[in-house]
Amino acid sequence: MEKIITKNLNLWYGDFQALKNVNSGFKANKITAIIGPSGCGKSTLLRVFNRMNDLIEGVKMNGEILVEGENILNPDIDLVNLRKKVGMVFQRPNPFPLSIYENIVFGEKIHGDNIKKDKLYDIVEESLKSVLLWDELKDRLNKSAMKLSLEQKQRLCIARLIAVKSDILLMDEPCSALDPQSTARIEELMRELKNNYTIIIVTHNMQQAARVSDNTGFMLFGELVEFRDTHEIFTAPSDKRTEDYITGRYG
């Protein structure tokens, strides 16, 4: 089943067309990687799924983006619900300068209808457990999240999404600030999470895409050149441009 479908999606920043006629389908409970050289539009594509591009002035879009069957380019769409459902992990781990506990309950505080304290505590425990941080951090939930290591921060950011019960996790180069060991552990976590979540990851690290994803899309100059099973795209690319990129001829 496809969680997100784009149909003839075009996007312009002012006069510059950043996405050209993108047709794609992102399967539920799979990890889909989007690869491509810098400036190819892969982050732009990711950021249309929770309408984060709205923050940039002069953005125009047409086409259709269906998230669980609902066109999110519809002007009546409830952005709050969309962004609860479609969470985003950013390139630089960016916890709020609050305690670990407060970081996780932030979403509940924003959306919340006066949830009881022990219920909140349960949410914190559950979210931290699902990112495998609970044992490390359970004794210092009230310490500042800014004191954690980069990897812990990034896990915390994922836990913060789990706490608002996102279905879809958008990850924008989530490991580019991390060392190789931390990267490996975050990838392990992603494999774990895909049982319950649909994950889309943007990366310029081809090895990472090959290791972690089920499907891969290759983008170039705003076009989605090829979008297939990860194993196939890396062993037998059907487009010359994909082949040139993954064999390292450019990018």
Partner: peptide, 14 residues
């Protein structure tokens, strides 16, 4: 930092 605003909005805050 702008990133604080981005995260907050991305979590569904108005």
């Amino acid at each position: 930092p702008q990133s604080f605003r981005e995260v907050s909005l991305s979590l569904g805050a108005s």
